[in-house]
Design a protein around this nucleic acid. Structure first.
Length: 270
DNA sequence: TGCGCACAAAGGCTAGAGAC
DNA sequence: GTCTCTAGCCTTTGTGCGCA
C-alpha cells in the first residue's frame, strides 16, 4: 500500500467509524418516501434488485455485502479503486500499491452494521472470509473465481461504478432500500405462515404420521432439502427440550455452520 | 454417475509494521 | 528492543452444482 492509498484508507475508515453506513441505513428506514432514485437508470436498478433477490441460504450474501462495502468506499473516497481489495503493509503478503484492505473495513464497519439492523445475516468475521473473494486478482469481468449467485450483476455494478455511470451513494441507498423490502417481506411471510399453522392446528388433530408427512413433503418439494432436514431435526429437539426429555442437557441454538466443525465444536448446524 | 470446484463459518497462524 | 496490532494466508467440513 503506497502513501496515497494509506491516506485514502484512513479517510474511509474515519468516515465509516463515525457511522457513515448507519446513517445511510437510518435514512432508508426512516425517510424512504423522500428518497429520489430517478437518477438511477432502470438497468442499474435491475442489477441492484437482482443482486438482492439472488440471496438464498446458500449463496449471494457475500456479494451483497461486498457491493455495499464497495459503494461506501466509492461514496466516501471517489479516487479509491474498488477493484483492488488488498492493501497489506507487509512485503511478504500480496497486495496492490493502490489497494486497501477491504477485509478489515468489512470486519470492523460493514458486517457489524448489517448484522445490527438485520439486513444481512453474515458471519461475524465478515463476508470477506469467503475464500473466493480473496483471490489475488482485481474485481473485474475476468475475476478468476467462478462464484455462484449474482456474479455477473455484481461485476456489472463494479464496472458501472468505476466508469462513473452510477452515483455510488444513490446506488447504496437503493440497495439498502431493497434489503429493507426483502427483510420486511420475509417477516411478513413468517407471520403469515405462523398464522396459517395456528389455524391449521386449531382445526386438525395432528398425529405423528401427519407431522412426519408434512415435514417430508416440505423437504421433497423444496430446494436445499438437506438444510430443511436439519431445521426439522432441530425443531424436534426443541420440542424434546420443552418436555424435559433430557433434563441434564442443553440444546444449543441452530448455528450457521453447515457441517461438523472441529474448531467451533459443533456437529452439523447444531 | 462421479469428480472437482465453490460456498459457507470461525477462527488460528504469522511476518512485518508501528508504537512505546 | 520489545510489545501490540494488522492483514493476508490457511484450515476444516458437507452440500450444491456444473461438467465430462
Amino acid at each position: 500500500m503506497n502513501q496515497t492509498a494509506k491516506i485514502r484508507y484512513k479517510k474511509i475508515a474515519t468516515e465509516l467509524s463515525s457511522g457513515y453506513l448507519e446513517r445511510q441505513i437510518l435514512l432508508c428506514r426512516n425517510s424512504s418516501s423522500n428518497l429520489d432514485f430517478s437518477q438511477l437508470s432502470q438497468e442499474h436498478k435491475l442489477l441492484l434488485g437482482t443482486l438482492v433477490s439472488s440471496v438464498t441460504s446458500e449463496v449471494g450474501r457475500a456479494l451483497v455485502g461486498l457491493t455495499i462495502l464497495q459503494l461506501c468506499v466509492k461514496s466516501i473516497e471517489p479516487e479509491q479503486n474498488i477493484r483492488l481489495h488488498k492493501g497489506s503493509a507487509s512485503s511478504r503478503d500480496f497486495s496492490w500499491h493502490d489497494g486497501i484492505s477491504m477485509r478489515s473495513l468489512d470486519k470492523q464497519y460493514i458486517t457489524p452494521t448489517l448484522r445490527k439492523y438485520e439486513l444481512l445475516r453474515l458471519n461475524a468475521d465478515g463476508f470477506m472470509m469467503t475464500r473466493s473473494l480473496a483471490e489475488n486478482y482485481p474485481y473485474s469481468s475476468v475475476y478468476k473465481a467462478n462464484m455462484r449467485g449474482a456474479r455477473s450483476e455484481w461485476l456489472n455494478i463494479v464496472e458501472a461504478v468505476e466508469e462513473d455511470q452510477i452515483v455510488p451513494e444513490l446506488a447504496l441507498l437503493y440497495l439498502l432500500s431493497q434489503l429493507f423490502n426483502q427483510a420486511d417481506n420475509f417477516r411478513e411471510l413468517a407471520v403469515q405462515i405462523t398464522d396459517k399453522l395456528l389455524s391449521y392446528l386449531e382445526t386438525t388433530i395432528i398425529n405423528k404420521e401427519i407431522a412426519f408427512n408434512i415435514i417430508l413433503q416440505h423437504m421433497n418439494n423444496s430446494a436445499y432439502a438437506a438444510r430443511l432436514m436439519e431445521i426439522a431435526m432441530h425443531s424436534l429437539m426443541q420440542a424434546m427440550q420443552e418436555f424435559q426429555i433430557f433434563p441434564n442437557y442443553l440444546l444449543k441454538p441452530l448455528s450457521q455452520m453447515r457441517s461438523a466443525n472441529k474448531k467451533h465444536g459443533n456437529i452439523g448446524d447444531i
